[in-house]
Structure formats: C-alpha cells, structure tokens
C-alpha cells in the first residue's frame, strides 16, 4: 500500500501592518485602506512546503506519495489566502473557521489547529512562519508541537536533509547556527532566510480559482465550548493603546564638520565614547 505523506503548512491572514500610517497630530493609527495579506513569514512556510514535497518526490520512492496542505484558522474571508497558497503550489487548503473559535489566544489557536491536523491522515511535517505580523508572539508553533507530542525546531534556516522518516534542520540563534536531526513527524517554524518565495504559476492560479476549500467548524472538530475561542483561552487582552512618543528630535545644523563635532560631543557627554 502506498503511504500518503502529508506536509501541513499553517498560514494566517493578517492586516498589512507595514502599510499602517500614524496620524502625527493625534498619534493614532490610520487604518483605512489597509488590506489583508498572508502573514509574510507564512509565505516562506508555503514555499518550503512546496520545496520539501519536491525533494521527497525526487527520492523516487514508490512506497509513498506526498501532498502539501495549507490550513488557516480565521474568519471566513481567510479563504482568500488559502487560494493564494494553492496558486503558489500548495495542493489543497482547509479553512478552520467558526464563530466559536474567535478570540482564541495562542493556546486556544494551537489546540484548535491540533484538532484539525489530527483529522488529516498521514501528517508528518508541519511548517509555520516564525511569528505573525499582528500578534508577533511565535508561540503557536511550540504549543502546537507540544499538543501533538512532536519535536519543534524554531527559526529553521535550512533543511539540509529530508527523508520519509527524518529531517536535518539548521537554525539560526542569536549568535550561532545549530543543526538538529529529528524523526518525523516534526514541526518547524521558518523565517525569511530559508528560501525565496516563488510567484504564482498560471496553472496554480487556475487551480486556485476552482479549488474546493472545505470549511471545518466546531461541529466537525468537536471541541467543547469551554475549550475554544475566548473561553478556551488562558489569556485575555484587557486594554489596547497607542504608545506615546514623548521625545523631541534635535536636528543638527551647520556645516558637516560642525554637525560631526556636535554629534561627537553628544556621544562624549552621554559616555558613549
């Protein structure tokens, strides 16, 4: 019997935070016209999923077949990024969406994703972006891996070896590269140093338009109300505010020599030289 190996890529739709402008008078954010995009780190996860599939297929082992599936948890409009993922070479998408899931913190998100992943037969490799643009926590990956009882390597910068049973992963820490071998199934998170994401192919675009993307709600995942969404979350946001920028900028005038002198004396004054 041919084994089905499935690579799961977890992606999230986020507001394009980098397009946010700040109203200088009121110090508030101008949110109008901000579009929703695939979390930028997730585009590297998609690309790596597609590449790992190609590498596994290149092993020419007839005893298994490989499929790469993107999962997104979020409101119904997240279906857009799943279609985009398919246009980028992902085989199929699953949308995990239910009003009951809204308000999930990282734990409730990881728990819900784990329930969805367990519904997929043959999952072996899970790839996530190292963090999201909106929440910026990077916690879902390690929490998800714990729930699934599999190893997790964060900040992967290169998969040096891949086979049906194991992966060798090089990752970048603050000041060093570490290389690990893990047995599959395993999860990794990736940053921008792992690959250069591709662009949608014509075939991919056509496929993405017609792709059927199932929506898995809680009826299918079968979680208790107290386990999901805000109720299933251990943390809760109680206040949101804009940081105050209280300082003034001193623009140094004069000739370049005078400017340099002034900077030099400031650095001296502040004991920075």
């Amino acid at each position: 019997m041919i084994e089905k190996i499935r690579i799961i890529v977890c992606i999230k739709q986020v507001p394009a935070v980098m397009e946010i402008k700040i109203n200088p008078e009121t110090n508030t954010l101008i949110r109008e016209g901000i579009e929703n995009i695939i979390n930028p780190f997730d585009t590297y996860a998609i690309e790596e999923g597609v590449r790992l599939k190609a590498r596994l297929i290149a092993l020419k082992d007839n005893s298994f077949d490989v499929e790469v599936i993107a999962i997104s948890m979020g409101p119904p409009q997240s279906v857009e990024i799943l279609r985009e993922a398919i246009s980028l070479g992902i085989d199929s998408g699953v949308l995990v969406s239910d009003r009951a899931f809204a308000g999930s913190d990282t734990w409730a998100t990881a728990y819900t994703l784990s329930k969805a992943i367990k519904k997929i037969e043959g999952w072996k490799i899970i790839i996530l972006g190292k963090q999201t643009l909106d929440g910026d926590t990077g916690q879902v990956g390690p929490e998800l891996a714990h729930i699934l009882n599999i190893p997790f390597i964060g900040y992967a910068s290169k998969i040096t070896e891949i086979s049906r049973n194991k992966m060798v992963i090089k990752r970048l820490m603050e000041d060093r590269y570490e290389t690990f071998e893990v047995r599959l199934p395993a999860a990794i998170s990736v940053g921008k140093d792992i690959n250069i994401p591709g662009i949608p192919s014509l075939r991919g675009k056509m496929k993405s338009r017609s792709a059927e993307i199932p929506v898995w709600g809680n009826e299918y995942l079968g979680m208790e109300a107290k386990e999901c969404g805000l109720n299933g979350s251990y943390t809760q946001v109680i206040k949101i505010f804009t940081p105050e920028h209280k300082h003034e900028t001193l623009m140094l005038s004069g000739t370049p020599d005078e400017q340099v002198s002034e900077i030099y004396s400031k650095l001296k004054e502040l004991n920075l030289i």
Partner: peptide, 23 residues
C-alpha cells in the same frame, strides 16, 4: 524573550496548561 526562551517557555506553558504572554 530570547530565541531559546521563546521556544522553551511556550512548551512549559502548554505542559502546565496556563497562559503565556510573549515578549
């Protein structure tokens, strides 16, 4: 919230089943 801390502590929180706020 070092790179090691941000990998290790979510695991600890998940085992204990408690909330964790990052960074």
């Amino acid at each position: 919230a070092t790179m090691f801390g941000r990998t290790l502590i979510p695991k600890v929180a998940a085992i204990i089943k408690t909330g964790l706020t990052a960074d």
